[in-house]
Structures are given as structure tokens and as C-alpha cells.
Design a protein around this nucleic acid. Structure first.
Lengths: 266, 266
DNA sequence: GACTTGAGTTGGTTA
DNA sequence: TAACCAAGTCAAGTC
């Protein structure tokens, strides 16, 4: 991971053109040669970037002889220093009085996609910091509490949709994608359940497609639709009602607790 | 913008739990106190983060007296150095032989959301670099959008939907939003066209809503639906067929070429 | 400010 | 590998 702080311009050409006027920004070059450009503004999305797989190339213009540093794929890591910072740039007097609009870039970074003509060109005018670090392998993120969890929990606690209900299967296949949960209610009718964390109209649309197709299957007909979520927007509620679907609010903490209780029974 | 390179653990609690085991990573703290955690892996999305508005708090444990550095909102920028790097950490011998699993963190970073109970806690075990930079104002990204080009091009080359077709208008209004293109085919029937770069089932749903409303207008009825995209997924194809819509694959390069040729005629 | 829609989406799972 | 779907999506535009 190389981290550069510099005054720069950037231009991305690919599916669109995206230009960044000259300003001070942070540039990250990852081990796979992908490049991200950040500013203080915005959320986690960089202003501009080049996704891997790509080729990264640097052309330095501040030496008497132009030098080209070109890291090539697998050798890139080897060329980087280990943990200790490897500061390439000497101190630069950022207060020097230089015409910001007419001076020349000291370095040009180019990242070009391997499988398309996408290109990101960054012109560096002043480099305030340029350090490389070997971060090593990322052990990975462990997540808990996403829709998948809700699905598993409701499948285990299918009684929450009504007394006497039993699970048919999760991810019940249809021609337009799998229904989150298929169950049978106390009266023996099939129930197709669409689960969302936050239920909006699109989720109701999704459920509508599923129920439509399922009701064309004479072995399943009639199929009830149920929209289950931790929160459901008023619009989704209205739409669900107009389609004849029931709504079910899921209490995640409660379900989680019950899930843990179930486990302790064995 | 503060950039920290450190061995760290992190845990996000909020809409979900997301835990990062101890590893070397890059931590960015922006001027608005939002926090991003990166590794070499992945694309531009950080492994974990806290979005603004939030409060950032640091507790240092490596001094004899615990010191708490607490930057509070508007004063945050003032406490940060100007451009020159402000390295808080002395050199650390990263090769020192320390039991990685039992030693204590040297610092704890906490970012808590102001309008929810979301919290991101980062425990730093070794700090390899810790520098702050004032990036100043971001002038902003300039995008030369090229993507509704498909819409413009198909409007100009409306014959692609069938011989004798003519354009009624782009962005034809309906109560549920504008249809990308309204046209009339060789037999005088109206054709509502939904355009996507990559056609999925949601696009077909969109088209369904439009056609449903348009067919309630006796001056337009009957309205054909057409789903046009550079690529269309099999499920979208199935759904479109079941709704009686035609699919049209758009060859962007070909359309672009024809568009340029048209221009040279004048 | 809430909602809708698209994104150079990114990321994960399954057929 | 391709397709589909969810995301702590983000971001822009509209109502």
C-alpha cells in the first residue's frame, strides 16, 4: 500500500469522463495496483479510482533525466518496503510562492485497466508525503445481522408467521428467482415470504412476481404472500395490502435471543 | 485528514455487527470525523467505516497517565496541522518479539454516530505511521455523463425498434414517472421503451408500471412494451416475455458509429 | 427531508 | 464462470 498526499489533477476516461481539478488529495495505490483518490468530502467512495486488474505506471518529471518507475504485477510488493516508511520525497516547502496554474507536474501516475480501455491519469504538482507500507494479508471481515440471518432465524422460528405453520424450504426456486422462504400455514396453504431488513416498495414488487408465478403452479395454488421486515415503509405497506399480502414486522433482537435459547435446549 | 497505519482490531455495531481481527491496516480519519479502514484487499469499499455525522474520540493507553484526545466537530480542523506532516509516533521497531495475542492496545479510537447508536471501535496495537494533512476544500468532480447517450442514440435511430417506427418523444411522462422513449410503430401502435445498460428484472417491473398506466389512456391504447438494453439477463427475458414485452439488444458501439455518421451528413 | 433511481456501484452466493 | 441479489450501499435528483 502506497499513500501519497499531493496537489494533483486527475482524469478518468472509460464508461464516462470524470475530471478532478487541481487540489490537495490523498492517493492510495494498493498492492494489486488499483488506485483510489480521496478528499475530505464525500463518504467512503473515492472521488476517482481505477479498479483492479490494472497496470500502474509512474513517470517522474522532476529529475534531470526523466525516470519511469513501472511496477509490474507480481513484483510490485517486492519493490515496496516493509513496514518502515519509505519516504521518497524530500521536504518540500509548501509555502513557496509558485504560480499554481502554470507550473509543471512533477510526476504523472497512470493506471490502465487490463480488460478495457479505461484509464486514470493523475498529474502530481506537489508531493507532501509519499510512503509505502506492506500491510500483509487481510484476515477478512466477519459480519452478523444481515438479511441472511433474518432468513435463517425466521426459517427456524416459522411459527412467527402463524400458529401451526411449517417450513417447506428457504430459497424456494421460481423462474424469476428464489423466494426467501416457502412455508405452509396451519390451514395447509402455501405461504411465500419475502424478507428484507428495511421493506420498501421494490420488495413488494419482488414478492408480487414470485406469488404470480407460484400461483400458476396447480400443486401450490393458492399461495399467500407475506412481506416480512424489521421496518416497512408506509408505501410498501399500502402496496402490499393492495396486492393482498400480509406484513410481518421482525424483531431481530427477539429472534436472535430465541435462536440462542433454541440452541441451549439440546 | 489523518492517516494511520497500524496493527489493529475493529468492531462495528449498529445495523449489523462487523468485526475485523487484528491485522495491519490503513485508517483514515476525515475532517468531518468520519473514519475508514482499508486493507490491500477489495475494491474501493473500506472494510469497515463510520459515516458522518459522527463523533471521533481517541484514548491513548501507552502513556503513564491515560490521555484522551477528543476533537469536537468544528474545532477539529483547527487542531490538525497544516500541510507538513505531524508525526505523533516515534519510531517503532516492528520486528520486536512480542506476543501478538496478549499484549495491550496502545490506543483506542471510537467513532459514534450522532443520530443513531452505531459505533465503530478500533484498537491499535502498533502504530507504524500517524500523520495529519490539511487537504483544504475539494473543488469537486466533473462528470461528463455519457450514459443517457443510449437514450439519445435510440431516439435518433428509432428505426432499430422496427421498420417504419417514428419517435413521439423521449422522457414521455406518466403518473409513475417518465418512460424513456415513446414511439409509434409501422402499424401505428404506440411503443413504450424502457432503456437500461444492463437489463434486469427491476427494469421489466418499471416498464410494466408504465405500460399499465399508458394502457388506461384510451388515446394511446394499445401500448406495446419494449425492453432495450446492451445486455438482458435470462430472468429479465423470462419476465418480459410473460408480460408480453419484446426485448431489444442495443449495440452501443454500432449505435455510436451510426450517430457519428448521421452527423457527417450535415 | 423523505423517496426514487442509478452507479465506472461492490460483494457474496448459487446454479 | 455467469447471473442474481443484497448492501451499514453512496449519491443525485425529485417531490
Amino acid at each position: 500500500m502506497r499513500i501519497i498526499v499531493a496537489d494533483c489533477e486527475a482524469e478518468y476516461t472509460g464508461r464516462l469522463l470524470a475530471r478532478l481539478p487541481r487540489a490537495r488529495r490523498v492517493i492510495m495505490v494498493k498492492a494489486d495496483e488499483s488506485v483510489l483518490i480521496f478528499s475530505e468530502a464525500g463518504a467512503y467512495k473515492p472521488l476517482n479510482w481505477m479498479a483492479a486488474p490494472c497496470r500502474f505506471r509512474e513517470t517522474r518529471l522532476d529529475d534531470e533525466d526523466q525516470t519511469v518507475a513501472d511496477t509490474d504485477g507480481e513484483d510490485a510488493a517486492a519493490e515496496k518496503s516493509d513496514v518502515d516508511a519509505d519516504t521518497d520525497q524530500p521536504d518540500i516547502d509548501m509555502d513557496a510562492d509558485v504560480d499554481a496554474d502554470t507550473d509543471q507536474p512533477v510526476s504523472i501516475l497512470q493506471a490502465t485497466a487490463l480488460k478495457s480501455s479505461d484509464a486514470l491519469v493523475i498529474r502530481l504538482y506537489r508531493v507532501y508525503s509519499d510512503e509505502s507500507f506492506d500491510l500483509g494479508r487481510e484476515p477478512g471481515l466477519v459480519k452478523d445481522g444481515v438479511e441472511d440471518n433474518l432468513q435463517h432465524l425466521l426459517a427456524e422460528q416459522i411459527g412467527r408467521i402463524g400458529h401451526g405453520a411449517r417450513l417447506v424450504r428457504r430459497e424456494f426456486p421460481t423462474p424469476v428467482g428464489p423466494v426467501d422462504i416457502m412455508a405452509v400455514d396451519g390451514q395447509g396453504r402455501h405461504v411465500a415470504i419475502e424478507i428484507k431488513r428495511h421493506g420498501g416498495v421494490d420488495g413488494v414488487e419482488q414478492l408480487t412476481r414470485y406469488v404470480h408465478f407460484l400461483n400458476e403452479d396447480s400443486t401450490l395454488r393458492p399461495v399467500r404472500g407475506m412481506f416480512a421486515a424489521q421496518t416497512i415503509t408506509p408505501q410498501a405497506r399500502t402496496l402490499a395490502a393492495s396486492r393482498g399480502f400480509e406484513c410481518l414486522i421482525l424483531d431481530y433482537d427477539d429472534m436472535k435471543k430465541e435462536g440462542e435459547t433454541d440452541l441451549t435446549l439440546f
